[in-house]
Design a protein around this nucleic acid. Structure first.
Lengths: 133, 133
DNA sequence: CGCGTGTACCGGTACCACTGGTACACATAG
DNA sequence: CTATGTGTACCAGTGGTACCGGTACACGCG
């Protein structure tokens, strides 16, 4: 398994692992039931510490992206609703609000932002198609 | 001047100041030419350190939100393009991508996210109308 | 039992945010 | 000129977090 980790990024390494796994699942590169490498093994592959991988796994389990079975391993979970789904949807709305503010300071009106949204959506679908091939 | 600062938030205080000012400007609550409080004065009002306010002001000046005149004060800038505008637009697109990934894990398809976008846009316009009144 | 798994510590390093304080450079008013 | 108000630049110190390297524990399975 390979994940794009950049130790010089301002984003914490464990967060990079979390985001990369979420993206791989969203793209269909990782499917429910797939086995994740052991903490020490993935740490070795990414040349980072096992504790850092463990923290990423804990966050991914909290978000119901993976399932952890003590002594057996960790696996990609079958999609099911999160207990705090409503709160996370509201968090998404808050991030959209941030985009509206940012767009204003870039002298971009709401219609242009909406168009950027749709362009990005098309690119995302394209990426996902290629990833599954 | 009042800004919603939460010292217990994981978001750095200086960043909260930056975001709050940007939001106030985007809403029209602060207009070009308006004077900002002095660093020590705003620090006193928010019960934070003047260095923290100074850092926020520097970031706001870098983003062309305010204009700083040594010895005179700081003022809301007239909107004008940023030198690194393209990079910031690309950053917005990257944040949209993150929303698409998050939406997938919330079992929300792209159409639902688009609808959430439009609903949030309507709410944003509503807020802005009230703020300007 | 032995092995592989996730988990939980610990000590230590490094970086960053924030505070409190002081000092400096500049613009303006008296 | 001085005095005042401004942004800016330091510094030392504190607290929190990310990360590392190491060790140890608890569980599932063969």
């Amino acid at each position: 398994m390979w994940l794009p980790i950049d130790p010089r990024s301002p984003k914490p390494v464990y967060q990079q692992v979390v985001d990369a796994v979420k993206e791989a699942v969203a793209k269909g590169m990782l499917e429910p039931g797939d086995r994740m490498p052991a903490v020490r093994e993935l740490a070795s592959q990414l040349t980072i510490n096992h504790n850092t991988v463990a923290r990423a796994y804990q966050e991914l389990e909290r978000d119901r992206v993976i399932e952890v079975l003590r002594g057996r391993g960790t696996f990609i979970a079958t999609s099911r609703p999160c207990p705090d789904r409503d709160a996370r949807v509201r968090a998404v709305a808050a991030r959209i609000r941030e985009l509206l503010i940012e767009a204003h300071h870039l002298q971009m009106n709401e219609e242009e932002l909406l168009e950027l949204f749709q362009v990005t959506l098309r690119e995302w679908r394209q990426e996902r198609r290629q990833a599954q091939a």
